[in-house]
């Protein structure tokens, strides 16, 4: 294993390395879930990247060991285990009663998650948590855009209309608050939903492939961190909290485990978790639920 790069951005529990191939690699501390393009370190509870690394430090991996110039931190990858979940193999099907029930449990958890000004604020059942209109002046517009866009996206997906899907996704790229903007988190979650329900259906796989190819290009319109997540999602590689929730839909004999997974996924970031969960839930229903929105403008209610 051989690569070189520089430290791109540093947070308490994560650090991005910009590789010479223009891709980002994410180092995360052990309390975080697994990531695509990520390396999860075994760290002590008090560990923080902020007192280990700074932006601009050169990074090199040679012989399976990552060394960082000017830092005492080195990472031995030689014994690291590889994490991968084949979302396509989950074959989530909301026509199945237990799966639909699990989906509904997650939807209720999302509704109870009273935090964030992201796209998930479109769910009318969730009162917006803002005490003061100063916090996010664009939220009303953001939600209005989402309300217009998301039903169109789901309908285009349902009917395999690539152009329609692209038209619906384009305004979401880089849209909204957060380090990974709300729209991007939704897109990643939505792709997770599509992959989870695609199975071996060639039409679905072709749709994901075609829209994904476009998205890999169009996502340059967002920031480098978000771009990396979207590119990974296009290939079916999604972060562990969302993947775990999708897995629970397929093993839906224990609703508490669904609630727990939903709760974990919703806790990610400020708005990222809720936006990603919303994306996953809507992505799951595009091909496997007979009807979603009963009225327009939509009050997103699942029609069983």
């Amino acid at each position: 294993m051989c690569f070189s790069g520089v430290i791109h951005s540093v947070f308490h529990h994560a650090c991005n390395v910009s590789l010479k191939s223009d891709e980002l690699l994410t180092l995360v501390s052990s309390e975080k879930g697994n990531f695509p393009q990520g390396i999860r370190l075994e760290t002590s509870p008090k560990f923080t990247f902020l007192n280990q690394l700074r932006v601009g430090q050169p990074v090199a991996c040679r012989g399976g060991i990552i060394r960082i110039s000017g830092s005492d931190l080195s990472i031995d990858l030689r014994t690291a285990s590889h994490w991968h979940v084949d979302l396509k193999g989950l074959r989530v099907d909301l026509h199945q009663r237990d799966t639909a029930q699990a989906w509904a449990v997650a939807w209720v958890e999302l509704g109870k998650h009273r935090r964030g000004d992201g796209i998930s604020g479109m769910i009318a059942a969730i009162p917006l948590p803002r005490q003061n209109p100063v916090t996010s002046p664009g939220i009303k517009i953001l939600v209005e855009r989402a309300v217009q866009t998301l039903p169109a996206l789901i309908n285009a997906t349902r009917n395999f209309q690539v152009e329609g899907a692209i038209t619906a996704i384009r305004p979401l790229i880089g849209l909204g608050p957060g380090l990974t903007p709300s729209g991007d988190d939704f897109i990643v979650g939505y792709l997770a939903g599509l992959w989870s329900t695609a199975g071996s259906d060639s039409s679905r796989l072709r749709f994901i492939s075609t829209v994904g190819a476009w998205l890999s290009q169009a996502a340059v319109g967002t920031n480098a961190i978000s771009y990396t997540y979207i590119k990974s999602a296009v290939k079916g590689n999604i972060s562990e909290p969302i993947v775990t929730l999708a897995q629970r839909f397929g093993q839906a004999n224990n609703m508490d485990s669904v609630r727990e997974a939903a709760g974990t996924a919703l806790q990610v970031g400020d708005t990222s978790g809720a936006d990603g969960v919303l994306g996953l839930l809507l992505g799951c229903i595009a091909w496997t639920a007979p009807s979603l929105f009963c009225c327009s403008p939509p009050q997103p209610v699942l029609c069983s």
């Binding site: 209109p133 100063v134 916090t135 996010s136 002046p137 664009g138 009303k140 517009i141 953001l142 855009r145 305004p171 979401l172 790229i173 880089g174 849209l175 909204g176 608050p177 957060g178 380090l179 903007p181 729209g183 319109g221 967002t222 920031n223 978000s226």
Partner: peptide, 20 residues
């Protein structure tokens, strides 16, 4: 009104629409 947001084209459009 205030916003601290990543300056993607869609977010700039959002803030313009919000009058910021």
């Amino acid at each position: 009104q205030a916003s601290a947001i990543m300056a993607s084209a869609n977010n700039i459009s959002l803030l313009k629409e919000a009058g910021l």
